[in-house]
């Protein structure tokens, strides 16, 4: 069973993964991108955003007066049309919307970090180091290494200082 919250969560999750891929392609953050070429990041991002919005507005009728749950069975039965469920009252208030939005964005970020770290595990961590051998800090560092590599490097440097 997928409740309205689930439908909303998936909508924000998909759209966030898409926005993140567009943003990291724009910023040239290779370590957070799923792809080697930025153009694929833009295409994937656009499709994920369109997919998220389509999911929410076509599959999950977002009118808040419609309190209903859609089951997988309903999805097969009705396809992309709405089953026109009965009106029973508000579902997602402002507070809940914000909470589930942040939760979905958090999961999208974790997914992005995990997938990019796995896909790009062979990325060269020396690519962006300057003449002194120092890599840039913060997100800038992810232009040349994955999040996992960056964290590993931080931990190693931290241990080296002790």
């Amino acid at each position: 069973m997928l409740t309205f919250v689930g439908v909303y969560f998936l909508f924000i999750y998909l759209a966030s993964v898409g926005v993140l891929q567009i943003a990291v392609s724009y910023s040239k953050l290779r370590g957070l991108s799923f792809f080697t070429r930025p153009i694929w990041g833009y295409i994937f991002g656009f499709l994920a955003i369109v997919g998220g919005f389509s999911w929410f507005y076509i599959v999950g009728n977002p009118h808040p007066e419609v309190a209903y749950t859609i089951s997988v069975g309903d999805l097969f039965r009705y396809g992309f049309s709405n089953p026109n469920p009965p009106s029973t009252g508000l579902i997602l208030g402002a507070g809940e919307s914000v909470f589930f939005f942040l939760l979905a964005v958090g999961f999208a970020l974790l997914t992005t970090i995990a997938i990019s770290s796995i896909v790009k595990f062979r990325i060269s961590t020396r690519a962006l180091e300057d003449k002194n051998g120092e890599a840039p800090e913060g997100l800038e560092a992810l232009k040349g290494m994955t999040f996992f590599q960056a964290i590993t490097r931080s931990l190693r440097n931290g241990q080296g200082k002790e």
């Binding site: 924000i12 966030s16 990291v24 953050l29 919005f53 977002p62 808040p64 997602l92 913060g138």
Partner: peptide
């Protein structure tokens, strides 16, 4: 509706956080 514009605006904020070319702009 209660979701469309707010979702777009919040997603723009997400883009702003990660989408920049220079550290100062970031």
């Amino acid at each position: 509706d209660d979701y469309f514009v707010f979702a777009i605006m919040a997603l723009i904020l997400l883009f702003l956080w990660f989408g920049f070319r220079r550290a100062v702009q970031g």
